[in-house]
Amino acid sequence: MANSFTGAVAVVQFPGVNCEYETAAAARAVGVSAAIFRWNEDPAALDGCLGIVLPGGFSYQDRIRAGVVAAKDRVMDAVSALARAGTPVLGICNGAQVLVEAGLIPGIHWEKVDLALAPNVMADREGYYCNWIYLRREPTNCLWTKLYGDGEVVPVPVAHAEGRFTTEDAGVLEEMKRGGQVALRYCDASGAVVPSFPVNPNGSVENIAGVCNREGNVLALMPHPERAAWLRQVPEDLGDRWARRRRAAAGDQAALEGEGPGRRFFAALGGAKGGSR
């Protein structure tokens, strides 16, 4: 009864994740097929998949540290091998924590943990935070952001308590920047990278919101693009062009079922080469 994911997006369901369905739906919205991969199914089923998404949630109850138990799961051996061979891998929120704990991000030294996603701590706020923020697409060869323009501002929601990218090794940060691995930064509606809350929602170093590997096929992203994949999801009170578009679509359900700001993360898979090994 093993599923096959050939040509499809596999959304990995670790016990305790809770965003697998809307993540699969966001992938389907760009015309690719997507299915849920339960963590203990045979990892061989992932061979030939179009891409892998590790969705948000609380895998293994965030025991020890967010993402660390899932990072040791059997399926992650397969994810690591496929990622190394070029399969697109996106970790969203808890999925980003898993990718960092598995050493796939930043991946400068493959499978070595060089980064951390630490508890949100800022001068005037700490702890869990759920709200819409803005992302700025940085110059990078990241596959997942290739459909956004350099410097483009993208509103999406964050919802996490541990999303502060940090590293003990300043060299790692420098190398990430040199290698074009800082794919996304938190910014304001005009694109300015302001280091304080609420523009930076968690205290992340240099406002980093998403980090890819040097090859660009693996992205660890704290915000949730699947919650911004339809226009109707955008709050009409936001202060940017997406919100203006949202307000202009009031009363037009068909328009609201159209593209939202986060959809192009998934649309990037449309042109991606899947299943290279």
Partner: peptide, 11 residues
């Protein structure tokens, strides 16, 4: 802001 109001994507 302490609560997840976005999960499930239906908001």
């Amino acid at each position: 802001r302490r609560y997840d109001s976005e999960v499930q994507g239906r908001a």
